[in-house]
Design a protein around this nucleic acid. Sequence first.
DNA 1: GCCAACGTTGGC
DNA 2: GCCAACGTTGGC
Length: 139
Amino acid sequence: MAYWLFKSEPDSWSWEQQKAAGKDGTEWTGVRNYQARNNMRAMKIGERGFFYHSNEGKEIVGIVEVAKLAHVDSTADNPTWECVDLRAVADMPKSVTLAEAKANEKLAKMALTSNSRLSVQPVTDDEWAEVCRMGGFKG
DNA sequence: GCCAACGTTGGC
DNA sequence: GCCAACGTTGGC
């Protein structure tokens, strides 16, 4: 099982909206970057990821799960752009900020801190465990 | 609001 | 296929 991280500006798509999308989840649209798209293509049903608020908040606020494999992004004018469907799983009991992640040397290599531009990122098992520990998420 | 970092585009 | 120019992202 691989782990992931999804970034979104709360102004365009917030964690509240993600939760409101319910159990069936909704498309993670708008990705126009090959690396991010390739990450989504590699995802499997049930794999989990962090939901990160960029710009405003700059913190990991929740856990999501892949509800549907990569398919053409319905908002794209070019079928090269694909996306998965995501559903909200749980709130992060205590949100983990970018500053906290940067201050933790176990997370020094995390894409979030080293390649902040990438909007859909892989997360290693160790990083997943560490962020969950910091956020008080058990599961 | 500024600007650095990065990805993409397009001329050659 | 190189690389300069440009646009976008996102932290500060």
